[in-house]
Design a protein around this nucleic acid. Sequence first.
DNA 1: TTCATAATTGAAATGATTACTACTATATCA
DNA 2: TGATATAGTAGTAATCATTTCAATTATGAA
Lengths: 134, 134
Amino acid sequence: MITTISKFLKEKGITPSVQRIEIMRFMLTHKTHPTVDDIYRELSKSIPTLSKTTIYNTLTLLCDKGAVISFTTDDNTTHYDGVVEEHAHFKCKNCGQIFDVPIPMINNSEPQGFDIQNVEVTYYGICPKCTEYQ
Amino acid sequence: MITTISKFLKEKGITPSVQRIEIMRFMLTHKTHPTVDDIYRELSKSIPTLSKTTIYNTLTLLCDKGAVISFTTDDNTTHYDGVVEEHAHFKCKNCGQIFDVPIPMINNSEPQGFDIQNVEVTYYGICPKCTEYQ
DNA sequence: TTCATAATTGAAATGATTACTACTATATCA
DNA sequence: TGATATAGTAGTAATCATTTCAATTATGAA
């Protein structure tokens, strides 16, 4: 498993290290759209010397190389996502959970004259579970 | 003009005050998607005692009452918009300007089972002017 | 006018992120 | 093998947006 992730990082042009492998593994095994703090809280259990700076550096690198994506929500903190295929997010205003949802685009409706590199689509509302118990 | 904005605020259920009127006026006359700091820098020229807390409070109130909308971008700061009709934004990675663009949704492609209250759509890329001079 | 309430202010606290410096691991080459 | 350059990591301090909170000021009704 370590070799798999190590190989994956090399393919992306990233020199592997213990920290980078564990952060990348975390992103691939957790579909919770974590923040730097979420990752720090979890991974510092197994790597007690891990610093937040390393997590910031690593995630910026992973983003640049296309291994993860980042997006922001109304909490004004950056969330990261190991799913890099284009998709939208739904954030529940009740429980705070962020869900992956299909992106509802039709090609010819994009703004003309702009060189679009990426899109962030975030829905806000109440998720099915919270709707049920209200 | 003051009476117009004052009347507008009352219609929205907001008690007018000098500060609220000037902040609302700023939002109606500036289509630049300002941050709290942008507004503070401009309005403190004419209202030297104006505090940022008041701007935060007022914008939160204006949002709640539907007089303005807010959204976040990759700079992790909240931007405000006096245009409340549903639309998307384009942020230029070169000059940083934010543009209003049409929202590219088709109704029946929205995620099912979610109670959607609002959507934020933000494109990132290079704006026409920056494309031209590159 | 008086009083209750709402609005505003400014300072301090918080939380995410960046900057910076020192330390450590890794790779290279003589 | 060992010296050395370089990349990566850690930890602290600084910065910036935002929130909290207590004190002051303005407003409106009796």
